[in-house]
C-alpha cells in the first residue's frame, strides 16, 4: 500500500514536471519568437584556410516570412534572400536574377557555414513541433538551467530530438543539441550574451557546430535587434528582391 502510494505520487510528479516542461517551452517560444523583428547580424565562418565574416540585415514576420539583405563583404553586398513559407529565392545584383533554391540545393551550406538553407527554413514554434520532457536541473556557464528533452510530434521535423539547456530565470536556451532519429548527435548550438531587448531576454551570440564535420563551427552575432516594428508588406515580395 505504501509502495502503491509512492508510485502514484511519482507518476503525478512526472505528470506535473512534463506540464512544467511544456510551460517552460512556451516561455522560451515567447522570448524567442515575436510578431516581427529586424536585426543585423555578423556571421563568422571558420574555413580551413581562413575565416571570413558576412554581415546582413534581416526582416522577419512571424516565422513564415523573412527577408535578408547581405551587407558585406563586397562580393556578397546586395545579395538578397527571400523566404516565404517553404520557398526560398535568392537575388543576385551582379546578374539581376532571382533564383529559386529547391530540392537538394536546400541542403547545401549557406555561405560555407555550418548552417544549411534547411536549417534556416525550419521556422515553426518549438511547441508546435515538439513535445517536451523535463530532464533535470543543471548549472551551465554559471547559470542555473532546466534541461528539457524534446521529441518531434510531427513527422517532418528536420531534427527528431533536441536537448535544451534553458536558463531558469530568463527562459532563454543557452545550449542546444540536435539529434538524429537514431540518437546520433548532429549539431550543437551554444547561445550566449543574453541581453534584455524590448522587454524580453534574447541571446545575441549563437555558435553552430556541425558535429559530424571537423572544424570550429560558425559564429552568429546579432545586433540592432528590434521587435514588433512596422514592416511594410512589400518587403516580402519578389519585386522587393530586385529593388
Amino acid at each position: 500500500m505504501k509502495h502503491f502510494l509512492l508510485l502514484i505520487l511519482l507518476i503525478s510528479a512526472t505528470e506535473v514536471l512534463s506540464q512544467d516542461a511544456e510551460a517552460i517551452l512556451q516561455k522560451v517560444d515567447r522570448n524567442l519568437s515575436s510578431e516581427n523583428r529586424i536585426f543585423e547580424s555578423a556571421m563568422l565562418i571558420h574555413g580551413r584556410r581562413n575565416d571570413r565574416t558576412v554581415t546582413s540585415r534581416t526582416y522577419s514576420v512571424g516565422n513564415k516570412k523573412s527577408f535578408t539583405e547581405y551587407l558585406t563583404p563586397p562580393r556578397e553586398q546586395g545579395t538578397k534572400m527571400l523566404k516565404l513559407e517553404s520557398q526560398l529565392w535568392i537575388y543576385s545584383p551582379s546578374t539581376d536574377r532571382i533564383i529559386q533554391i529547391s530540392g537538394h540545393m536546400l541542403r547545401q551550406s549557406v555561405m560555407g557555414s555550418d548552417l544549411s538553407y534547411v536549417d534556416m527554413m525550419d521556422d515553426r514554434k518549438l511547441t508546435d513541433v515538439y513535445s517536451a520532457i523535463y530532464a533535470g536541473d543543471e548549472i551551465f556557464d554559471d547559470r542555473k538551467v532546466h534541461v528539457l528533452e524534446l521529441t518531434a510530434k510531427v513527422t517532418d521535423a528536420a531534427y527528431y530530438k533536441r536537448k535544451m539547456w534553458i536558463d531558469r530565470e530568463r527562459f532563454v536556451p543557452l545550449k542546444e543539441e540536435l539529434y538524429a532519429k537514431s540518437g546520433q548527435l548532429l549539431k550543437r548550438t551554444t547561445l550566449s550574451e543574453v541581453k534584455q531587448i524590448g522587454g524580453r531576454w534574447f541571446p545575441t551570440k549563437i555558435v553552430f557546430k556541425d558535429m559530424l564535420k571537423e572544424g570550429e563551427g560558425t559564429e552568429f552575432r546579432m545586433s540592432n535587434i528590434k521587435f514588433n516594428q512596422k514592416i511594410p508588406d512589400y518587403i516580402f515580395s519578389k519585386a522587393a528582391l530586385k529593388k
Binding site: D156, Y159, A180, S182, Q184, L186
Partner: peptide, 16 residues
Amino acid sequence: ILIRWRDKNGVFDATE
C-alpha cells in the same frame, strides 16, 4: 562509417 541522410519527410537521421 558515419552516414547522414533524410527520411521521406526530410527528418535528418544518421548512423554508423
